[in-house]
Design a protein around this nucleic acid. Structure first.
Lengths: 196, 196
DNA sequence: GACTAAAAAGCACGATCGTTCTATTGTTCG
DNA sequence: CGAACAATAGAACGATCGTGCTTTTTAGTC
């Protein structure tokens, strides 16, 4: 890895942590440069614009997400086990991940849901992919006979998402300690009600 | 109402709409002044600081929320009817309310969940109040014999919130038209499973 | 080790930020 | 109507913003 890519990755890592707490649009190139210990212009040269920096931060988060959430789950056996793994990895990502400010995607979603442009578009496409992944995992669980045939797998994906959203909201804003247990309990109920 | 209060309310109204789309921290005093057609300093004089302006915007939103969501529901008969009314008014507020950018509280929650200070504190206290209101409405429904005695009313409030959060997320970011139906369906299921 | 290309720094730009001050206008009330 | 005061405007502040240059430093290659 060349020197350029090396610092570029270091920048993105710092930016990721910062964006998860203060938000993607509150990222400041000056602050970021100070954090990684280099000049504004030196940092800027790695990205042609701030918007591009934000996009790269998101892309980097997606790559990380695939590594720690999606890929390990796909190595689990088809069916309920894989669904469980997807949820658990996702859950861990949303809580004790390297991101100090919680899930960047959820934060970015409510930040950019009304701001048209490439960032919003990228968010939409990745969220669509993720929902499709969840839905397909549920469909496989139906095929494997773990879940009932009448299960609406899109609704299942939607319900899984609800659990994470609520957990994120309550644990991060209200710091309610029971959020975790509540989320896990709701998840078990959802699995139970989906069984064959 | 004096001239001062009059323009102050006009400012807050404009700020409310703006904050719901671009976020509370992206509120700019200069932009705001241009929108309402007055000078920066003239506008600034109404609030001692930007943080105070943000707080006043939130307070104004809470007042509006109580008017159109909470108060009408409290006039409904105790029990399931009131719970339904709370949810429906809340639902309308989150979708077709005067706020063009969706529910300001949800947006502000994920914006400030990692930023300590009076804004976060205010958000936390109002959200706590709202959860308590939901929980109490459910408790009354239990007393009235509409809901089963074994119902965990805190969990009920939590589940109600999940529905709104998911609806907000999917309808605003992904613009999925079925979000509305899905939310309403989930709500009916929740009511059904809570019945005596 | 010299040459070349990549990476970083330095500097400056116009714009906007929140905020403070003073001056001017407008409203309110005796 | 005029006095007292509230409301607004105007101008300026230091700071920071994203971005474009030009120059210097550093890394990679023969």
């Amino acid at each position: 890895m060349s020197k350029g890519e090396q610092t570029r990755e270091a920048i993105l890592e710092t930016a990721l942590a910062s964006a998860s707490t203060v938000g993607l649009s509150a990222l400041s190139i000056g602050d970021l440069a100070r954090s990684v210990g280099m000049s504004k212009s030196g940092l800027f040269a790695h990205f042609e614009s701030k918007e591009n920096l934000q996009l790269e931060v998101l892309r980097s988060a997606v790559a990380h997400y695939i590594d720690v959430v999606v890929a390990p789950a796909l190595r689990k056996p088809r069916g309920e086990a894989r669904v469980r793994s997807l949820f658990e990895n996702w859950f861990d990502w949303s809580s004790k991940s390297t991101l100090p400010g919680g899930c960047l995607f959820i934060a970015a979603a409510s930040e950019f849901d009304d701001q048209p442009g490439p960032i919003r578009e990228y968010l939409v496409s990745t969220q669509r992919d993720w929902l499709a992944t969840l839905s397909q995992a549920a469909r496989i669980a139906v095929e494997e006979g773990h879940f009932r045939r009448s299960l609406d797998t899109d609704q299942f994906a939607h319900d899984l998402y609800s659990i994470i959203l609520a957990f994120h909201h309550f644990s991060r804003l209200l710091r309610i300690p029971s959020s975790r247990k509540r989320a896990l309990r709701t998840f078990e109920q959802l699995i139970e009600s989906s069984r064959a």
